[in-house]
């Protein structure tokens, strides 16, 4: 039963992948929470620069995390989807705000509540998978959120360093600094080759400033998605920047068509 309700298909893929990621990292995140990061980094972020989020104790932290996982799984299973997506939003803030200083959380999960919010107001999440009348704008908006992530990063590079950012020295310096911290050889090997740093800097800038093109030229999607995955894999191996962990559930937005084809093959 192939259907065009891409939003619902994405909801299922997103919720399952995110629930899985949180579950896989739950123990490590609890260990981090128990080190009391607030004592080092100070108070975490305030919601929309207005609302100070509460500090949780260990039981509350575990409960919010487990609650979030349950809500995501129930939403994926189609059990009062909108309600459980709605509950997952405050639980996201309660849980992740406690560990926001963790390297692979930081800004890297900020896109998650935006995606949940989009799904919450989307009319398609309550329609069946095969519904032909489902709307496409939630998918476009989620893609726009991903595009903003890259565009913003590119714009910041231009604003702070200009086109000089592409000369390779900045990337080289960041790679060296990372090596001094971590003793990881991969980044160091690349950093020793200035021409390679220049090439990678140009690629990064071009990629970040043009990712939004997929919104207007969907035929470019798979080229950019492949480039993005390579880019994130590269930053993970050389600089320990792990965007893949919590961006992967959002990236499912590019695989809804594939999921429909797979579903059609498995259950014709």
């Amino acid at each position: 039963m192939a259907g065009p309700n891409y939003t619902l298909m994405f909801t299922k893929l997103f919720c399952i992948t995110l629930a899985l990621q949180i579950s896989l990292n739950f123990k490590a995140q609890l260990r981090y929470f128990q080190t009391e990061p607030r004592k080092i980094y100070g108070a975490p972020l305030t919601l929309l620069d207005i609302l100070k989020l509460p500090e949780l104790n260990t039981v509350q932290f575990i409960s919010s995390g487990l609650g979030l996982i349950c809500c995501l799984l129930l939403a994926a299973a189609g059990v009062v989807t909108r309600l459980f997506i709605g509950i997952a939003i405050p639980l996201y803030f309660l849980y992740f705000n406690q560990i926001i200083s963790l390297a692979y959380v930081q800004r890297k999960t900020n896109i998650l509540p935006l995606v949940l919010l989009i799904l919450l107001v989307s009319p398609s999440v309550t329609l069946p998978l095969g519904n032909m009348a489902s709307v496409k704008w939630p998918i476009i908006l989620i893609e726009a959120c991903i595009a903003q992530l890259y565009l913003s990063s590119g714009v910041q590079k231009l604003k702070q360093s200009g086109l000089g950012w592409c000369n390779g020295e900045t990337l080289q310096a960041h790679l060296f600094a990372n090596y001094l911290w971590s003793d990881r050889k991969t980044g160091f090997i690349i950093a020793q080759k200035r021409w390679l740093c220049t090439l990678l800097s140009i690629f990064t800038m071009l990629f970040e400033l043009s990712f939004w093109l997929i919104l207007f030229f969907p035929q470019l999607t798979y080229i950019y998605v492949s480039a993005a995955l390579l880019f994130h894999l590269g930053t993970l191996l050389t600089m320990r920047i792990n965007y893949l962990k919590y961006l992967l559930p959002v990236y499912m937005v590019f695989f809804t068509q594939f999921a429909f084809s797979l579903q059609h093959k498995l259950w014709p």
Binding site: N110, S153, S161, G164
Partner: peptide, 12 residues
């Protein structure tokens, strides 16, 4: 927050 700009590694 949660709307973000992404300035990491932007500085010269």
């Amino acid at each position: 927050y949660p709307f973000s700009h992404y300035p990491m590694f932007s500085n010269k």
